[in-house]
Design a protein around this nucleic acid. Structure first.
Length: 151
DNA sequence: GCCAACGTTGGC
DNA sequence: GCCAACGTTGGC
């Protein structure tokens, strides 16, 4: 799950009540559908910092609430306000709640580190033009990442 | 700040 | 339903 640390960093998640935050503001259908159709309570999520000095995985979280309507789409004061949702009278977007588990010990497992590991060459985050803010990670990729994170 | 890549919008 | 124009993403 990508986030800009200036907006919501992994540290922000860890500092939130119950270390839990709602993943509001996803406004891309493919990313929404991943949350709606694939996310289950208990699933592990990698929190990735984008648009920052050292982009990469900053921490591990887990899904503690499955997809439900994202009310920010109906909030005119929100930067995530969606006129089409407001017109329809209900949010077309969903969010999940995630709870921080642990930060990456070194601070970040950088994109460069990920790119340097041949076993991770299949990761979507490395693919050219891949901008999706929610990306699936395979079990084998996760196994390698866990090794790199010291188990 | 650049710019490639991609998604969305809207006129036709 | 095509597709040009526009907006956004995000590494570099």
């Amino acid at each position: 799950m990508k986030t800009e640390p200036d907006v919501c960093s992994f540290a922000d998640i860890m500092a939130a009540p119950r270390r839990t935050t709602s993943w509001e503001g996803v406004r891309n259908y493919q990313a929404r559908n991943f949350m709606r159709d694939q996310f289950r309570v208990g699933d592990i999520a990698l929190i990735y910092h984008s648009s920052t000095d050292v982009p990469g995985i900053a921490g591990i979280a887990k899904v503690v609430r499955a997809a439900y309507p994202d009310p920010s789409a109906l909030d005119k004061k929100s930067e995530y306000f969606d006129p089409a949702s407001a017109k329809a009278g209900e949010s077309r977007w969903v969010m999940v709640d995630v709870q921080g588990i642990s930060a990456v010990p070194s601070g970040v497992l950088s994109l460069a580190d990920i790119r340097g590991e041949k076993k991770l060459a299949s990761m979507l985050v490395l693919q050219r033009g891949q901008r999706l803010s929610i990306q699936p990670v395979s079990q084998s990729e996760w196994n390698v990442l866990q090794q790199m994170l010291g188990g």
